[in-house]
Amino acid sequence: SPEEIKAKALDLLNKKLHRANKFGQDQADIDSLQRQINRVEKFGVDLNSKLAEELGLV
């Protein structure tokens, strides 16, 4: 269901964000992850996106 997909995506992105902060990645990478999280919260996951591929939806 779209809600489950959204939850999985947010979980994955939050893990990536945590790792980025923990290991001191570029601020641009961290900002990009934050924008992705905001986009998923607002609009859900686009099944044509790279994120959908990472989640194994495509």
Rank of each mutant, 00 (worst) to 15 (best):
N14V: 09
L51C: 03
N14P: 00
K16T: 02
R39Y: 15
F43K: 03
Q27M: 09
I30T: 04
D26E: 09
A28I: 10
G56Y: 04
E54M: 09
L17Q: 01
G56C: 05
D46Q: 09
S1R: 10
I5L: 10
L51S: 02
K6M: 05
Q36H: 07
Q36I: 13
L57S: 03
N48K: 10
R19Y: 15
D46W: 06
G56S: 05
V58H: 13
K8M: 13
Q36W: 09
F23D: 13
V40L: 07
L57Y: 09
S32W: 13
Q27N: 07
L13I: 02
L12Y: 14
E53C: 10
D46V: 05
V40K: 00
K50I: 07
L51T: 02
A7D: 07
R35A: 14
V45N: 01
S49E: 04
S1L: 08
H18Q: 13
H18K: 13
K15V: 05
V45W: 02
E3I: 07
A20I: 06
D11I: 11
A28T: 10
D26T: 11
Q25G: 15
L55R: 00
E41K: 13
G44L: 02
L10S: 00
N21L: 15
R39T: 13
N38R: 10
E53L: 14
Q27W: 10
N14G: 06
A9I: 08
K16D: 02
Q36S: 05
Q34L: 15
F23P: 04
L10R: 02
R35N: 14
I5T: 06
E4F: 09
E54T: 06
L10G: 00
E41H: 11
P2L: 13
N21T: 14
F43W: 12
P2Q: 12
N48G: 12
L17F: 04
Q25W: 15
E41D: 04
K16V: 03
F43V: 05
H18T: 11
L13V: 00
L10M: 05
N21G: 08
L33Q: 01
L17W: 04
D29Y: 15
P2C: 12
R39G: 07
A20S: 04
I5K: 03
F23T: 13
H18Y: 13
K50D: 09
L10D: 00
K22I: 12
K8D: 03
G44I: 01
A9K: 00
G56N: 06
K6S: 04
H18F: 12
L12Q: 03
V58L: 07
K6L: 07
E53Q: 13
Q25I: 12
E41S: 10
G56E: 05
N38L: 13
L51V: 04
I30P: 01
S49V: 02
S49F: 02
E54W: 14
